[in-house]
Amino acid sequence: KYLVLALYDYQEKSPREVTMKKGDILTLLNSTNKDWWKVEVNGRQGFVPAAYVKYL
């Protein structure tokens, strides 16, 4: 498993997404889509914009 760092705040806009705050450390679950990565944060799984996170 990889960890990624939230570069920006992101507010979920659909039930498939998750909210994150700048500085959050997220567990990367799937990065096959170049635009949306599946992550786990605070016990929830969902998608965030790939451009908003970077590998640690």
Score class of each variant (00 low, 15 high):
residue 1 K to L: 13
residue 1 K to W: 10
residue 1 K to S: 11
residue 2 Y to A: 14
residue 2 Y to D: 12
residue 3 L to G: 04
residue 6 A to G: 03
residue 6 A to C: 11
residue 6 A to F: 03
residue 7 L to T: 06
residue 7 L to F: 05
residue 9 D to I: 02
residue 9 D to E: 05
residue 9 D to Y: 04
residue 10 Y to I: 02
residue 10 Y to L: 01
residue 10 Y to V: 01
residue 10 Y to T: 01
residue 10 Y to R: 02
residue 11 Q to P: 07
residue 11 Q to Y: 14
residue 11 Q to A: 14
residue 12 E to I: 06
residue 13 K to Q: 14
residue 13 K to Y: 05
residue 13 K to F: 05
residue 13 K to L: 11
residue 14 S to F: 06
residue 14 S to K: 07
residue 15 P to R: 10
residue 15 P to Y: 09
residue 16 R to Q: 15
residue 16 R to L: 14
residue 17 E to T: 08
residue 17 E to D: 06
residue 17 E to K: 05
residue 18 V to I: 15
residue 18 V to L: 14
residue 18 V to G: 02
residue 19 T to V: 03
residue 20 M to Y: 02
residue 20 M to P: 01
residue 20 M to D: 00
residue 20 M to L: 09
residue 21 K to E: 07
residue 21 K to S: 10
residue 21 K to R: 12
residue 22 K to I: 07
residue 23 G to Y: 05
residue 24 D to L: 04
residue 24 D to Q: 13
residue 24 D to A: 07
residue 25 I to S: 03
residue 25 I to L: 09
residue 25 I to E: 04
residue 26 L to E: 00
residue 26 L to D: 00
residue 27 T to F: 12
residue 27 T to K: 12
residue 27 T to R: 13
residue 27 T to L: 15
residue 28 L to T: 02
residue 28 L to S: 02
residue 29 L to H: 06
residue 29 L to C: 07
residue 30 N to W: 07
residue 30 N to K: 06
residue 31 S to N: 15
residue 31 S to A: 15
residue 32 T to Y: 10
residue 32 T to G: 11
residue 32 T to K: 11
residue 32 T to S: 15
residue 32 T to D: 15
residue 32 T to N: 13
residue 32 T to P: 04
residue 33 N to T: 07
residue 33 N to S: 11
residue 33 N to I: 06
residue 33 N to F: 07
residue 33 N to G: 11
residue 33 N to W: 07
residue 34 K to D: 14
residue 34 K to V: 10
residue 34 K to P: 14
residue 35 D to Q: 12
residue 35 D to T: 13
residue 35 D to G: 09
residue 35 D to P: 03
residue 35 D to Y: 14
residue 36 W to H: 03
residue 36 W to D: 01
residue 36 W to T: 02
residue 36 W to V: 03
residue 36 W to Q: 03
residue 37 W to V: 10
residue 37 W to C: 06
residue 39 V to H: 00
residue 39 V to T: 01
residue 39 V to M: 01
residue 40 E to Y: 06
residue 40 E to D: 11
residue 40 E to R: 07
residue 40 E to Q: 09
residue 41 V to R: 12
residue 41 V to Y: 10
residue 41 V to D: 03
residue 41 V to P: 00
residue 41 V to H: 14
residue 42 N to A: 11
residue 42 N to M: 09
residue 42 N to D: 13
residue 43 G to Q: 07
residue 44 R to I: 09
residue 45 Q to G: 06
residue 45 Q to P: 07
residue 45 Q to W: 08
residue 46 G to T: 02
residue 46 G to H: 02
residue 48 V to P: 00
residue 48 V to G: 00
residue 49 P to F: 03
residue 50 A to C: 06
residue 50 A to Q: 06
residue 50 A to Y: 02
residue 50 A to V: 07
residue 50 A to F: 02
residue 50 A to G: 05
residue 50 A to E: 03
residue 51 A to C: 12
residue 51 A to L: 11
residue 51 A to G: 12
residue 51 A to S: 14
residue 52 Y to C: 09
residue 52 Y to K: 09
residue 52 Y to D: 05
residue 52 Y to Q: 07
residue 52 Y to P: 00
residue 53 V to M: 05
residue 53 V to W: 01
residue 53 V to Y: 01
residue 53 V to D: 00
residue 53 V to I: 09
residue 54 K to L: 13
residue 54 K to Y: 10
residue 54 K to E: 14
residue 54 K to R: 13
residue 54 K to A: 15
residue 55 Y to L: 15
residue 55 Y to W: 12
residue 56 L to V: 13
residue 56 L to T: 08
